[in-house]
């Protein structure tokens, strides 16, 4: 009797999307397959569905965000959920409320899904222990940004047909990048070979233990790559102890059409945005629709987030 009760309780537990690290290959593939259906819906005249009708989705953003936040907002709305977005960055925190207090307050309102963005690594994990709804990580500290990696994977599949066997270079500020980490896990999982390229001061320790090859040189790192993912270099990292100057960074690590030639001749460029034109990427190259997938990434982001919301929301 006791055993039965127990299994029921586990079944009743909400599922969370906290990171690619916690995902199985099958789960990742299921999300991507589901997302393909939503690409079509998003391109049709009537974009609305009622899959999440009656469900409440709260977007809890402790860190400012434009594209991720609007993407989740739109995704929820297109699925028919009631979406509320809270920018906690400038309200409760100033009053001394902790993440846990905020979580308990929101939990009392019976949401079905909380989408969280937080500046501290592990914050979504902590939140998921305290609420009884689904938690979806929209980026935590330097740790993970799972929906970004999933949308990147979908974009690649859309253009290259597959991920298995591809060679992918991730370039730039790897140290502070959650996008890099999630992509490393996901691309590895889906069978790609991953190179990371960064100056030594922006390369995390023991990164090769995550299953990548690391390079400090764009020529070597991009060699034969099918996809070149550029990362945003935040302004504050350009001076001080990480790098000597913007100019020097651009010279050695900024993606230009010359450097792109080190990669495969059909190589495509990706960027999670927002871009620093003329810092990590040449502005013309960024807009070149023949090689840049940046716009497509944003478009497919909505589809991937719809898939995640649908699959993780408790029925």
């Amino acid at each position: 009797m006791a055993v039965k009760k127990n299994t029921l309780a586990i079944k009743d537990q909400p599922k969370h999307l906290l990171g690619i690290q916690n995902l199985s290959i099958q789960e990742a593939k299921d999300i991507l397959d589901e997302a393909k259906i939503f690409i079509k819906l998003n391109r049709s005249a009537s974009k609305k569905s009622d899959i999440l009708r009656g469900k409440t989705q709260i977007n809890l953003f402790f860190e400012p965000s434009t594209r991720t936040q609007s993407s989740f907002d739109l995704a929820g709305k297109r699925l028919g959920a009631d979406v509320m977005t809270m920018n906690v960055a400038n309200s409760a925190l100033k009053k001394g409320e902790t993440l846990m207090d905020t979580a308990m307050t929101l939990n009392a309102m019976h949401p079905d899904i909380i989408v969280i963005r937080h500046q501290d690594s592990g914050a979504p994990n902590l939140l998921s222990q305290k609420v009884n709804c689904t938690v979806i990580n929209a980026g935590d500290g330097w740790r993970e940004h799972p929906t970004q990696a999933l949308l990147d994977a979908l974009t690649i599949i859309n253009r290259k047909g597959k991920i298995e066997g591809l060679k992918i270079a991730i370039c730039g500020d790897i140290l502070h990048s959650r996008v890099a980490r999630s992509n490393i896990y996901l691309m590895n999982m889906l069978g790609a070979e991953v190179n990371v390229v960064a100056p030594k001061t922006l390369m995390p320790k023991s990164i090769e233990r995550l299953g990548v090859k690391s390079f400090t040189n764009m020529k070597k790192g991009l060699d034969g790559c099918d996809i070149v993912m550029m990362l945003r270099l935040q302004n504050e990292r350009m001076q001080g102890s990480f790098l000597p100057s913007k100019r020097e960074y651009y010279e050695f690590y900024g993606l230009t059409s010359e450097k792109l030639k080190f990669a495969d001749k059909d190589a495509l460029i990706m960027h999670p945005g927002p871009m620093n034109r003329g810092v990590e990427i040449d502005t013309k190259l960024a807009d070149d629709i023949n090689v840049s997938l940046v716009k497509e990434q944003v478009e497919l982001g909505v589809a991937v987030r719809m898939a995640c919301l649908k699959m993780y929301c408790k029925k």
């Binding site: 592990g122 330097w142 320790k205």
Partner: peptide, 13 residues
Amino acid sequence: NEGEVSTRLGLQG
């Protein structure tokens, strides 16, 4: 500690 765990957890080592 700065190392594999800090890299995985995304924490400053």
